[in-house]
């Protein structure tokens, strides 16, 4: 009796788990199946026409690319630097626990609030206007905690003996970090950065208020220009466009490109992590 009940419960747990797997699979399947038929070279390489109802999504791809590059340029040095400080230098004191509290807080701030913040400080106060610069800085603030946490974890994974050996040979602390810690934690840090960037590439709310242009069928000339971006383009096509019902293929195509970009980044990060785990083993 007890045994049958146990078996039944175990089976239900398994069913629930695989139901979730099925749902994930179906979402991917739906986007890929419907998006695939919209994809062709012209779709990814040409400019949109008729407010995005026809033509391609080239400027949105370029815009997202610029935003991603801008976000990395700002958040990577700050995030990795901060992580090195926290993992190697920071002792237990008030100031350092304040830093940790700030990182946890940042990680929980809703993305739309980052949008408001970016609007208030970068767009208006610094006068950048809605621009690549303002958008990248906003996204960089958002992904900073992700990069710090992942980088710190990867630094802490380097065995203590490496550090002791280096210090015992007379290296200064920075020499020790540079020669005996960073080389071994680099791939872990890059993994963290890519995961953060994937998140930035797919976010809509922060760029809604700081950079994204509704319909701008030309390429930006400087960092002070607005751009189109893939997530915002999808949002507009799906909900704001007067012909939304008739241009489903354009929407699915955009969704697929965005999904491929973000999943491609995550997959790259995971492969890199597996590869480096094989390379460095201690």
């Amino acid at each position: 009796m007890n045994n049958t009940a146990d078996k039944f419960i175990l089976l239900s747990l398994r069913l629930i788990t695989y139901a979730i797997v099925l749902v994930v699979g179906y979402i991917l399947f739906d986007i890929i199946r419907n998006g695939f038929s919209a994809l062709n070279w012209q779709f990814v390489s040409s400019f949109p026409r008729r407010s995005g109802a026809a033509g391609g999504i080239f400027p949105a791809i370029v815009g997202t690319f610029y935003l991603v590059v801008g976000t990395i340029a700002v958040s990577l040095p700050l995030g990795v630097g901060g992580a090195i400080y926290l993992a190697e230098y920071a002792e237990q004191n008030r100031f350092n626990s304040l830093i940790r509290l700030a990182i946890i807080t940042l990680a929980g701030v809703p993305s739309i609030v980052f949008g408001l913040f970016g609007l208030g400080i970068f767009v208006l106060f610094f006068g950048f206007g809605p621009s690549i610069l303002a958008g990248s800085l906003t996204l960089a603030c958002m992904v900073l905690p992700t990069i710090i946490v992942a980088s710190e974890e990867s630094l802490r994974a380097v065995p203590k003996g490496f550090r002791d050996a280096s210090l015992a040979l007379g290296a200064t602390k920075w020499e020790m970090i540079r020669t005996n810690v960073l080389p071994y934690s680099l791939s872990g840090m890059i993994t963290g950065a890519i995961l953060g960037i994937g998140r930035a590439a797919g976010e809509t709310a922060p760029i809604l208020l700081t950079v994204a242009a509704f319909y701008l069928p030309r390429l930006p000339k400087s960092v002070f220009d607005q751009v189109m971006a893939l997530p915002y383009h999808l949002y507009i096509l799906a909900t704001q466009h007067p012909e939304a019902e008739r241009i489903r293929h354009m929407q699915y195509g955009t969704a697929l490109i965005l999904l491929l970009l973000v999943l491609g980044l995550s997959l790259g990060a995971i492969l890199l992590r597996t590869h480096s785990r094989k390379k460095f083993r201690w």
């Binding site: 630097g81 106060f125 710090i148």
Partner: peptide, 30 residues
């Protein structure tokens, strides 16, 4: 170099605190 790097890295770590303060400041300002 050692001292400088320490300061520089500490500065990078402090950005998080700065950003959190700025978020509160600018939200209330607007």
């Amino acid at each position: 170099t050692d001292k400088l790097m320490r300061l520089l890295l500490m500065g990078a770590a402090s950005t998080s605190v700065l950003v959190v303060c700025l978020i509160f400041l600018f939200l209330f300002k607007e």
